[in-house]
């Protein structure tokens, strides 16, 4: 079904409850504006393979819209890489859209840094991790603070393959992400972390779906957000374990730190378990900064502002604690620390 044939999804749908489609669409919902291209470049200047846009038929309105809007379309195949691969995604113009296809056949570490100042940016990443391959993937959103951002990802993780997936979202004004992963073979695993620093009037909606289709598959999701000002963060998770996917292990933890009275946060993990012999857990918590933590740090000479900044920094960094790849952890920690230091100086 193409975008123009689709009905606007109702707010009663879990995915569209907090950021309905008209709020994230770049103009009015029956329009598909002409999109400029998001330019993908590899650090060092190597070029991507430009590919024809996919003719896949999507059921989901966000993916169908990004397909209809066009923009750039690139593919990167990595057989094996000992050094991290940095991809810069640069958006410009009024409305910019990019499609990126990643195919991982060995072991690799890939970072995508998205930046730019368009009013609206759309990005669709599809990835396949082949059997026995490992990908450590970091996504860093550093878009302009006035940009609306729609991001969709679809990952297929094959037998005995591993995906470590980290998101650091500190850019954009209104952001909606819909990240879906399918564990498509026995022994497949994903460790995923999402870190969001919401300041001012930012609105950030992160939806993560992980589907266990086979037995002995593992998933671990940690989502931490710090919300200041009048920001609003929404974290929704959907974890499904298919019938027969026994011996699977899945967990989702959502934590929100509320830094002002006007800041809001929702944390809604959902489970659908159809197999009998599995381990599945989920938890969610939203709370202000702990007074005892503040007192402890202030008793060591840190001012109230420095104490809160250290607690927030630690809280956000802690979202990466379920990751294991040292390049991935180091890069995400560094990016977050630099961002928070810049914010403290503002």
């Amino acid at each position: 079904m193409n975008y123009q044939q689709m009905a606007i999804p109702p707010r009663s749908e879990h995915l569209w409850r907090y950021t309905p489609w008209p709020r994230i669409h770049p103009t009015v919902t029956d329009e598909v504006p002409k999109a400029d291209e998001v330019i993908f470049s590899l650090e060092g200047g190597d070029a991507f393979e430009a590919v024809a846009p996919t003719d896949h038929s999507y059921d989901d309105i966000a993916r169908a819209f990004l397909q209809a809007a066009g923009g750039s379309s690139s593919r990167l195949i990595i057989n094996e890489s000992s050094e991290p691969v940095h991809i810069n995604a640069r958006a410009s113009g009024h409305v910019a859209v990019g499609h990126l296809e990643l195919e991982i056949k060995g072991s690799a570490v890939v970072f995508i840094h998205i930046s730019g100042e368009p009013e609206w940016v759309g990005l669709h990443i599809t990835g396949t991790i082949h059997p026995n391959a490992q990908l450590s993937f970091g996504f860093i959103n550093e878009l302009d603070s006035n940009t609306k951002f729609l991001r969709c990802e679809d990952w297929m993780i094959e037998r005995d393959a591993e995906l470590e997936h980290a998101t650091l979202s500190v850019g954009g004004f209104r952001c909606k992400s819909d990240l879906r992963s399918t564990l498509n073979g026995t022994g497949a695993s994903i460790r995923q972390s999402v870190t969001v620093n919401a300041i001012g009037a930012r609105h950030e909606d992160q939806h993560v779906e992980i589907h266990h289709l086979h037995g002995r598959t593992n998933s671990d999701l940690v989502m931490n957000s710090a919300c200041a000002g009048s920001s609003h963060f929404i974290g929704t998770g959907l974890l499904t374990i298919a019938e027969g996917a026994n011996k699977s292990d899945a967990s989702q933890v959502f934590r929100n730190l509320l830094l002002s009275e006007k800041a809001r946060a929702e944390a809604i993990p959902e489970l659908e378990v159809l197999a009998d012999d599995v381990s599945a857990a989920h938890g969610a918590a939203s709370a202000p900064v702990d007074k005892n933590q503040m007192h402890y740090l202030m008793s060591r000479g840190l001012s109230p502002e420095e104490s809160q900044a250290m607690i927030v920094n630690g809280f956000l960094l802690n979202a990466f604690s379920n990751l294991t790849n040292k390049f991935l952890i180091e890069e995400m920690r560094t990016r977050l620390t630099v961002h928070l230091e810049c914010e403290l100086k503002r």
């Binding site: 740090l297 060591r300 250290m310």
Partner: peptide, 16 residues
């Protein structure tokens, strides 16, 4: 003593 997740002891000591 309070637990401060995500803050490394080395970083904390230097700051203090």
């Amino acid at each position: 003593p309070a637990v401060i997740p995500g803050v490394q002891v080395g970083t904390f000591l230097k700051k203090a």
